[in-house]
């Protein structure tokens, strides 16, 4: 299976959070499934820096969330992307605890878990995920190469420091 990943260009990102708004709007959620971390400019000894990173689902080849879900609420599609079926999710949060990147989100009203499915409906229609398509600076792109996948995993792992 080819791994899919959203590649983040930290040199292009300006921390505007358009990715979050596009995600939240498209998915009809009060929260976004990706999170722009940092994004506040600061003077460091080596110059002005903008330490921005995007916490997003890594679309793991061996998804721990899927393994942890005891309610059968999670499925994997033909592209290897894990989906959550809202009807079966009871909001227990086992998936979030199992995720090495804390990349799932809890709905503040329903309590159910949500995760990025790379905008399945848009993908089926041949469109890019909302965050990628709408990114103000074209700092995001969807890739299916091994190299980008490894790079993306590394970049997401760094998010822990900024959470």
């Amino acid at each position: 299976m080819t791994p899919l990943s959203i590649v983040f260009d930290e040199n292009r990102c300006i921390g505007c959070k358009a990715c979050e708004v596009h995600c939240s709007q498209w998915n009809g959620l009060p929260m976004s499934l990706c999170r722009l971390l940092g994004g506040s400019p600061r003077q460091e000894p080596d110059g002005m820096r903008l330490a921005a990173n995007l916490l997003r689902c890594a679309h793991c080849l061996k998804p721990q969330c899927l393994k942890a879900c005891g309610r059968g609420a999670m499925q994997r599609d033909e592209d290897g992307v894990v989906h959550i079926g809202a009807a079966r999710c009871d909001g227990c949060g086992d998936c979030l605890r199992a995720c090495p990147y804390q990349a799932l989100r809890r709905h503040p009203v329903t309590g159910k878990m949500h995760k990025c499915d790379l905008c399945a409906g848009r993908r089926r229609a041949g469109e890019e995920p909302a965050c990628v398509a709408g990114c103000l600076t074209r700092a995001l792109r969807l890739s299916n190469t091994e190299d980008d996948y490894r790079r993306t995993i590394k970049s997401i792992a760094l998010c822990r420091r900024q959470l």
Binding site: C16, A18, V21, H22, G134
Partner: peptide, 24 residues
């Protein structure tokens, strides 16, 4: 259902957070 930059006139579908929040 969705708002994005005009791909025929601008830099692709890129749109800033405020524009994306227009539907909000």
């Amino acid at each position: 259902r969705w708002i994005c930059g005009n791909r025929h006139l601008g830099p692709g579908a890129a749109l800033c957070p405020r524009g994306a929040a227009g539907l909000g």
